[in-house]
Amino acid sequence: MLKILKYSFFDLVRSRWSYVYLLFYLLIGYVLLFLNHDLSKAVITLMNIIVILVPLIGTIFGIMYYYNSREFTELLLAQPVKRMSVFLGQYLGVALSLSLSLLIGLGLPFISYGLFQSDAVWEFGLLLVNGTFLTLIFTALAFNIAMINENRIKGFSYAILMWLFLAVIYDGIFLMSLVVFGEYPLDNFSIIATMLNPIDLSRILILLKLDISALLGYTGAIFQKFFGTHTGVLLSMTILTLWVALPVYNIYRKSLKKDF
């Protein structure tokens, strides 16, 4: 698996798209800092970008890479390597090269603006951890969709729909149901609904850092416990890890049965 990971990674870090992605983040980082001069504020703006764009880019990259490397995958499958290694190797190749672009692309501008001397360093770190998680999750989800759909156009559409659903529509439905069922106790529902969407989950992790003052204004005891103690961070991190583990496990499972 490591050998396949190595070559997929080599391939990807040299691709034009990795550079585009890297440049995009460098640009965002510098532009934000140039406009704000304020690290904390730039971190908040960045959060909005990361939570939405990282999943989109992970999804598109994942699905494109899978479809484009189909024949190469066949070549690999004819080699004496385990099937699991082929797919997980490719998956990690994509996910890691994307994460690397993110880390370098955002890290450089912020470090050059004196991140380490600023108190925003923890928030920024959390942001990068989140971005990496989201990359791992959405690349894995894209691989899943691609493995199920032989038809590229279908697969691509499903992937984009999935992103649109999790990034926007889900929250719309969530908000509507909260407003409609406002008379009922909704603490548990809200927390569970948040856990079921990785984008919401990483948004909450950032909220816990940036907006704790507002979150603690809510009266519910369960919210209080969730937001007021370390429970929230620990639980969110655990579920995010699950969000990586489950799709990856499914890639493994699918890879054992799939025909080429």
Binding site: S8, F10, D11, R14, N68, E71, F72, L75
Partner: peptide, 11 residues
Amino acid sequence: LPQIANFPANL
């Protein structure tokens, strides 16, 4: 020897 040869583009 597979039917269609398609390799990682950037290697």
